[in-house]
């Protein structure tokens, strides 16, 4: 299996539901707690696995605003694994999820340097690197109803812009939607072969317009006076 996420940029409105759901789930999740520094102070920040980058393309008034959620891409060629000196960083052979063993990690940050997607963060309080676990603590939990064995971000997304599944299975929802919508990887030229894909905004053909010709008001009102519609 090659589990991952597909994110639909056609409908992502940048609401941050996925980011906060992830933060919430993982606070009490397998690598929790996710530390918050100066939470009520002058410089609040903290450990998040999912961050939304919003940017604009083009110039006013034709500009487009794009909301781009980014979290670990669970790459096929995960260099964050290659560089890890302790073996804490690894990619599971059974499902391709890239994880950090919190007992082995020494927080050297080398993996964060290797990742071009900004997926890894140092939790200063625990001294370890943390990142998206693809909710490994949800997706196999048989106590949860099957429909809920999905990452928190996917379940919560209000515009249903997030999909989860096996990209090795050509009939899965994720594979199907990538095929049908022309899903793409972020920065494929870097060679990490990310598993997560993004769906581009849909391009609409121009809408049709009603075709009655303009007529003179005088003529029209005369005609309209005589028209009889029953109540």
């Amino acid at each position: 299996m090659r589990l991952g996420l597909v994110i639909d940029l056609d409908v992502c409105v940048g609401c941050h539901a996925c980011a906060v759901a992830c933060k919430q789930w993982n606070s009490s999740g397998t690598t929790g707690p996710l530390t918050d520094y100066d939470p009520y102070g002058a410089d609040p920040s903290g450990v998040w696995f999912n961050r939304i980058r919003s940017f604009e393309v083009g110039e006013y008034p034709q500009s487009k605003t794009v909301n781009f959620p980014m979290s670990c891409m669970h790459c096929e060629t995960a260099e964050c694994v290659t560089v890890c000196p302790t073996g804490a960083s690894y990619k599971r052979p059974e499902d391709g999820i890239v994880l950090v063993d919190q007992d082995k990690c020494m927080g050297c940050n080398y993996c964060a340097w290797a990742c071009p997607y900004g997926a890894r963060e140092l939790d200063q309080a625990s001294g370890t690197m943390k990142k998206c676990t693809l909710c490994v603590d949800r997706i196999y939990d048989e106590v949860l109803p099957e429909a809920e064995r999905q990452p928190a971000c996917v379940l919560t997304c209000p515009t249903r812009a997030r999909y989860f599944g096996d990209l090795d299975d050509p009939d899965s929802a994720v594979s199907t939607v990538v095929r049908e919508r022309g899903g793409f990887q972020s920065m494929p030229e870097l060679g990490y072969n990310p598993t997560n894909h993004y769906l581009p905004p849909r391009v609409q053909p121009p809408a049709q317009q009603a075709e009655n010709p303009l007529v003179s008001l005088q003529d029209k009102l005369k005609e309209w006076m005589a028209k009889a519609i029953a109540k």
């Binding site: 606070s27 009490s28 999740g29 397998t30 690598t31 929790g32 707690p33 530390t35 918050d36 520094y37 100066d38 939470p39 009520y40 102070g41 903290g46 073996g87 804490a88 690894y90 052979p93 994880l99 063993d101 919190q102 007992d103 082995k104 309080a125 676990t133 490994v136 603590d137």
Partner: peptide, 27 residues
């Protein structure tokens, strides 16, 4: 006083350990 660090969790985290065998055979 508002805390200057928050580490919210409702139970102690259970780590997913990478097996030694996996490290030795795949690293």
């Amino acid at each position: 006083e508002s805390p200057d660090e928050l580490r919210y969790q409702t139970h102690k985290a259970v780590n997913l350990r990478r097996s030694l065998k996996d490290i030795l055979t795949r690293s």
